[in-house]
Simulated scan of single mutants.
Amino acid sequence: MSELLFKQFELTRGNFLKHIEGLNPEQASFQPDGFNNNIHWQIGHVLTVAEQFMMGYPKKSSHLPENYIALFGNGTRPADWSGDVPSLELLTDQLKAQLGRIKEVPASMLDEKLKKPFLGLETFGELANMALFHESYHLGQIHAMKKLVK
């Protein structure tokens, strides 16, 4: 079962990267009517949340700067950004590197109980599945936004 989970991470992240490939900063910063954010935020959000779920960021992972939570965490939005915002290229490189780290997670970890249940999830494997669901959801948001980019 663990092989399938990590294969799904490859498939999902590969499709995610394919959808953001070739976007320019202007396209990525466009916020369509009816959306709370833009594609740039979506990319950073997926990166940040996957790091939180899979690597315990920010306490157990130092692969991303701490300010990513303020930029891309739940409830944030580009309209509130100030200071240095990472480029699309940097975020894309970080997504690729993150996939490599995810694939190095020992399969035995998937059965480990979480110290505290999260959204009804009790094991690390269930949390990994949530990370995949979350990334797929935001991939759909990006797909919709790209159709509306002027």
Rank of each mutant, 00 (worst) to 15 (best):
F53D: 06
E10H: 03
E26P: 08
G44H: 00
E122M: 05
A97N: 13
M55F: 12
P65V: 02
A131V: 02
P117D: 03
K103R: 11
S61L: 01
F133N: 13
E89H: 09
M109E: 15
K115Q: 11
H40L: 05
E122P: 02
Q42L: 04
H63A: 14
D93P: 07
P58C: 06
S2M: 11
E126T: 02
I102T: 08
K7L: 15
A79E: 15
L139M: 06
A107G: 08
K116F: 12
Q8T: 15
G34M: 12
K60W: 01
Q31K: 15
L64G: 04
A79T: 13
L132A: 03
M130C: 08
T12N: 10
K18E: 15
E21M: 09
A144M: 12
L47P: 01
I39Q: 07
M130R: 14
K113A: 15
L90M: 11
P106G: 07
M109H: 14
K96W: 03
L17R: 02
G75A: 05
V49W: 00
M54N: 09
K7A: 15
L5R: 09
A128F: 08
I20E: 07
L114A: 03
P25I: 04
L119C: 13
L23P: 01
N74I: 05
K59F: 10
Q42H: 01
N37Y: 10
L139C: 02
E135K: 03
D33C: 11
G100V: 05
S82D: 07
F72E: 02
W41G: 04
K146R: 12
N37M: 01
H19R: 12
K60Q: 14
E66M: 07
S2H: 13
L139Q: 11
V85N: 00
L90G: 03
W81S: 00
L119V: 13
L90S: 12
H19T: 12
A70C: 00
F133G: 08
A97K: 12
K150P: 15
K60T: 06
K147E: 15
E26Y: 03
L110H: 07
L23W: 00
D80V: 00
H40N: 06
K113Q: 14
K96Q: 08
L4Q: 13
A79Y: 06
E89L: 04
A128I: 04
K150H: 13
N37F: 03
V46I: 11
P106R: 09
G34E: 13
H19D: 13
K96E: 09
